[in-house]
Design a protein around this nucleic acid. Structure first.
Lengths: 154, 154
DNA sequence: TTGCAGATGCGAATGATTTGCAAATCGGAA
DNA sequence: TTCCGATTTGCAAATCATTCGCATCTGCAA
C-alpha cells in the first residue's frame, strides 16, 4: 500500500511508522517541490489512515533530508522551504516569474566553478543551490509577440 | 558626513531622511553582506545621531532593494536575509557552513547555462541566484567539525 | 506479549519580518 | 523662514514558517 518504503526505512535504520510511510508515499507522487504545509494539507485530503500532525511532517521531512532521500531548498523571494524526493539526478529548477511554473533542467554548470573555488580560494564545496528565474516560452508568447516555440517539460 | 547620499536619493526620487542616510552610509562600509539585525546593532553602536528602529531598518532596506541600490539574498540553511550594496559587479557568494563567513567570487558560471536554457527549453532567463556552501580553508584546517560560530553575519 | 527507546500530537515558543497607527519629519509652497 | 500635507518613523502587536517541551503512544527486538 505504501510501496516498499518499509524496506527502504529498514535499510536506513529508521523505524517504519504510519506517518513516515504516508509522507514518503505522498512525496513520491509529487511532480514538483512542495512545502511542508502542502504535504500536511494533502495528507488531510486523503481519507482513511488518520492524520499526520504538522510538527510531525516537519520532523519526518527533516529526517528524510538527513537520510538524503529528500532534498530541501528555499524558495527564492519567499522565506519558506520546499521539499522533493532525491532521485540523485542533480536537477536544477527554473521558475517562470509570470506563471510560477517550475521547470527542471538536467545538468549543472557548476562543476568547473567548484574546482576553481578549491584552487583559488581553497574553499571545499559541499553543495550548492541554484535558482534561475525568467520567462517561459508560453508566457513570452502570450504577453508580447517575441516568443518562440513552446516547449514545456513540466 | 553621509557621503552624497542626498544626491542619490534625489535622483531616485525618494526623501532624504536621517534614517535612510545612516543606513546607506553603514551599508557602504560593509565588506560583506549583513543582516537587518546587524545593521540595527551597528547603528546603535555608533554614537551621535540618535537611533534607528529595527522596523525602519527593514523598511529602508526594502526600499533600497526596490530601487536596486542594495541586493538582498537568503542565507543558505538559515532563514534570514542578508543585504549588500549593489555595485553592479555580479559577484556570487560562497558560505562556510562552519564559521558562516561569506566569501565573494568574481565571475559567473552561468552564461553558457542560460544560453542552453534558451535553446533547449526556450526559457528566457531574467536572473539567477547561486548559493554555494562548504568549508573554508581555515575551518578545514582547525578540523573543528561543529564550527567556531564566529557569528560573522548576525 | 512485553518493555522501552524512539516517535508523535499538541500547544506554546521562537525568530525573522511585517503591519497598524499615532506622532514626527521632510521639503515644496507661501 | 514658516507652514502644511504627504511620507516616514517608532513602537508594539501581529504574522508566518518552523521548532520545542513534554506527556503519551508505538514499533519492534527479545
Amino acid at each position: 500500500m505504501y510501496g516498499d518504503s518499509k524496506e527502504l526505512f529498514d535499510r536506513l535504520g529508521i523505524r517504519s511508522t504510519r506517518q513516515r510511510k504516508r509522507v514518503y508515499a505522498l512525496m513520491l507522487e509529487q511532480k514538483e517541490p512542495v512545502t511542508a504545509e502542502r504535504i500536511y494539507r494533502l495528507l488531510h485530503g486523503k481519507e482513511g489512515d488518520g492524520t499526520v500532525n504538522l510538527s510531525t511532517v516537519y520532523r519526518v521531512l527533516e529526517l528524510f533530508v538527513n537520510k538524503e532521500i529528500v532534498l530541501k531548498s528555499m524558495i527564492a523571494k519567499e522565506n519558506k522551504a520546499v521539499y522533493e524526493i532525491n532521485d540523485m539526478s542533480h536537477k536544477h529548477h527554473v521558475t517562470c516569474l509570470s506563471c510560477r511554473k517550475v521547470f527542471f533542467v538536467e545538468g549543472c554548470p557548476l562543476r568547473d566553478f567548484e574546482e576553481k573555488l578549491l584552487e583559488q580560494l581553497d574553499f571545499q564545496v559541499a553543495g550548492h543551490q541554484l535558482e534561475v528565474y525568467g520567462y517561459c516560452a508560453e508566457c513570452r508568447k502570450s504577453q508580447n509577440g517575441s516568443g518562440q516555440d513552446k516547449n514545456v517539460l513540466s
